[in-house]
Simulated scan of single mutants.
Amino acid sequence: MRRPRSRRVSDAVRPFGERLGAAMSRRGPLCVGIDPHPSLLASWGLADDADGLRRFSATVLEAVAGVAAAVKPQVALYERHGSAGMAALEELLADAHDAGVLTIADAKRGDIGSTMAAYADAWLRDGSPLAADAVTLSPYLGFESLRPALDLAAQTGRGVFVLALTSNPEGASVQHVGQGEEGGAVARRITEAAASENARRAGSPRGTGGDGSPDDLGSVGLVVGATVGDAVARLGLDLAAMGGPVLAPGLGAQGATAAVLRETFGAAYAQVLGTSSRDILSGGPGAGGVRARAERTLAELSA
């Protein structure tokens, strides 16, 4: 087994939001989810084991390294294989770093106190074998419970994406609570907390450039499902003023299109990192088929 390499972000490297904005401007606003579902591994002719994960991950990275602004491995699908699966994830994160591709670990971590600090240490610390460029976080123990991750990400030049408005039907029972009341819905409060964090880190409001490019993005982003429809407007989420990137999963297999993203996110579209997994990955098992689907999706997002 190849020993994963420890990674760090140099003090000279720009903050994550700026690096992501540059990657989106250079390559386009596409994030490819690396989701090694058992059924997908089988369709690629790969075993549902750690070796299958490695082969799958390496092929996807090879296919999209010159196309996607970022890749987003789904941590749970590596974790289900125990330590061998996590070693495969560590190798993917290291290989992506070497290839100059930003990584977003889709771990959805959230806890309090020393436990949250330990999660932050795993995913955001310089030298950690699991260190990604950014990690997804759950704020539903209170946004401030994420403080250890917010602070460590700022120190190491990394980023976070905080769950705000997801497209699963059950999400509304929590995220929409408070709609029409003073202070607004939970999702709106999370959005405003992210905006405050970005403004505080920058010393001034963040946002997109006047030409619509993802310029000067903050490093605290949000996860907003690509298929949430009018909920962004209905709940009063000012994503443009939030100033950070918006990770929007749901392109392709879940039904969202580039046109849907433009309608859903409006003035904040330049901040949106459209995310597709199954639709692009079904182009395998060859890297060429995956790349062709990624290029097609990117062209639609960039049109």
Rank of each mutant, 00 (worst) to 15 (best):
R2E: 14
P4V: 08
R5I: 11
R7G: 09
A23C: 07
G28H: 06
P29Y: 04
S39H: 14
L46E: 11
L46G: 00
A50N: 12
T59N: 05
T59V: 15
V71K: 02
K72I: 06
V75F: 03
A88G: 06
E91M: 11
L93M: 07
I104N: 00
R109L: 01
R109G: 11
D111N: 09
S114R: 11
A117C: 01
W123V: 12
W123H: 15
G127T: 07
A131W: 02
A134D: 02
Y140I: 07
L141V: 13
R147P: 00
L152Q: 11
A153P: 07
Q155H: 06
G157R: 05
V160R: 01
V162I: 13
G171V: 13
S173C: 07
H176Y: 13
G184K: 03
G184E: 08
R188I: 10
R188Y: 10
T191M: 05
S204W: 12
D211R: 09
D211H: 05
G212L: 09
P214H: 14
V220C: 00
D238F: 14
G243M: 15
A248C: 11
A248N: 10
P249K: 01
Q254V: 13
A258G: 12
A259M: 13
R262I: 15
G266S: 09
A267T: 12
D279V: 03
A292L: 13
A303Q: 14
